[in-house]
Design a protein around this nucleic acid. Sequence first.
DNA 1: GAGTTTGAAACT
DNA 2: CAGTTTCAAACTC
Length: 711
Amino acid sequence: MRRVAGSDVYRQSDDIQPKPQLMPCFQNEIQSYSSSGCIDEHLADPFNGDNIMNSSMSGPTSHKETATEADDTNAGDGKAKVMVSDQTGEELPSASMNFFEVTAREKETERFGEFLQCLSGNVDDHVESDILGGTFSGEQHHELFSPQRYSKESLGSHSKESVKEADQPHRGIRRHLHFGTHETASLCLPARQTDFESLVPPHVETRTISGSWQARNCSQTAKSWPSFSPPACESVRAAQNCGNRAVNSIVRSESMGSESSKVKKLGSNLHQQEEKLMSYGIPFLSFYGEIYSHLGYEQNESQGSFSYQSSGIIQPPCDSLHLIPYEQQATLCKGTMPSSEYADIVELNQMSPERNRKKAKYTIKREGCRRCKCKRSRCLKLYCECFAAGIYCLDTCSCENCFNKPEYEETVLDMRQVTETRNPLAFAPKVVTNATNSPANMMEKGSLMKPSSSRHKKGCNCKKSKCSKKYCECFQAGVGCCNGCRCEGCYNPYGKKPETIYRRSERWNNPSQEQQHSLLESPSDCIKAERSNQFSSTWEELAGIGHLTPPSHCLLGAVASSGSLNTTDCSKKLAGQLQQESSVLSPSGYLNWNHSPSSLSPKLYGREALHELCSDSFFCDIMEDATPETLKNTCTPSTEGVKSCSPNQKWVSPPKIRSHELRSGSSQRLRSGCKFILQDLPSFPPLTPYSKSQAAIHQNDGDHKGSTGYQ
DNA sequence: GAGTTTGAAACT
DNA sequence: CAGTTTCAAACTC
């Protein structure tokens, strides 16, 4: 019997019923200002119920109808029940929604004025007074520690609070800043986007913020929402987006036009305020990031450069889709080119003029219509490109019964959690990129943006497409197939799957390994043996460092990569060594960290995750070219040129480690793995200055000792 | 635009 | 963990 369409979604998430949230989203506003070109519109535009409904219920799907219905209802009694029906006509549990009432709207407008005031220089007053004054009440404290509740309240009950707090002018903002102040102490950034959204009054769309949940999550430690590595943090995809930007720059420059100066101005102001906020540990990134990304785009695209001019606090938005405003998601999504659209562009440059034209037409066509078209998944499963990418669906999507919208934030978050429970790396970047790519490498194989050493994290499993069509994830991502792929008859133009597994094993330069492999009869045996050997350890040992900030994450990754170490002791030793090495690798203390901190939450990462993270493609193939010369010269014996453990190799590791490694047949592989992890994890934008980060780590260590951090 | 193919994701 | 089903994108016509 055929299952009722979409029923699984509800089965899975009985508690995850769509929870329409009425707070209009800033992101939508950004989206609209971009098109209209003026952010001031939002500031000046008084509360507009229609807008709210339209924005919160926007979408090409049935929600629009729902919105209309709700709006009508709203006109009657100020409340609306949104009945969301799925395809089968089955009525979803409705969510009763309290809409903002007129007085509340006015107050919210006032609050937004305060918000703006904060942005223009008074933020620290609020924060400081709270910090110094110790104004945490028990209730507030509870709220701070109850993201779930807070999240609901921040939206569902926001209107009530608006009224209730109407005569407490600063409370709204201050209360939310408490979050930040508290975090200053605990370094637990808000676990929900709504926490930060709450900084923005309801009539200001926070969709930019909420839509970039991944952005904020990137700034979070592992304690917070676990899912973030979305393409948001997907450096490769971001790189593709950079490519997209090149294509879309004209569009954007036209759409933004003279308004860019306003955005710049606001961005500048925000930058200043962010620095203040950041000094208190308040995550201002999301909001700022959106603005900044606008600036970045404009600046760099006009210069024809893909590089970003960092503020010094935030790394190039180019590195992460999450920093791309919702509007720009739309723009990008017009060519969302999840993976290889950019490759199409690259391809354009290489093709004959005639084919170029044809391809260009194709690309443009795709740019105009690209987004998901989900019908049954409600955009809450990985089938959905948007969901999988960690972004909300846009109006440009053609999906039906879409719940991947800011107004269903909790549903989305819950589903992400469910998805991550199933596969902790579900939202991790599908393509891992060598962080050390030189421009030359970037140009290699005709790929402008796609480093030659990029590999699909998991590898494809193509049977019929020969990896030469977009059915193939590797091809789609514009990367070559690797040993991690299980494809058959690979003909990936970006790089065929290496012929034998054994050849790869030689790279480990481990005599014992080679010997071991020589005993294996088939490639599959090699795979199994190698994998089991490589990844026999688990991350349980590492549970204590899951919430550490990048440098420690690096260590975590490095240790994790040392899968062949089977004893905790060894891991500890290695950790010690790696800690030293890490300082070499990244003087700044910011090691490239590709996966979201939350994604690396030890609780979620078991053997499987480790296995996946350290998949062959992730590990083996890139290793050679992933290692920078400095490392090769110092502690990397794992080049082709060094077939075995050379006594002449100069190791930078402490003698005790070396002695251990000399005893260990997998020492070199370990090192290689470690280096690889350290190097290849895509850049994770340092969200705070190093000094702050270090202080944070220090503080965090104290605060979180004995805690796995993740909840 | 409809129908088919394909392979990932989800499910059993 | 393997086999099956579901799903949506990619592709073809």
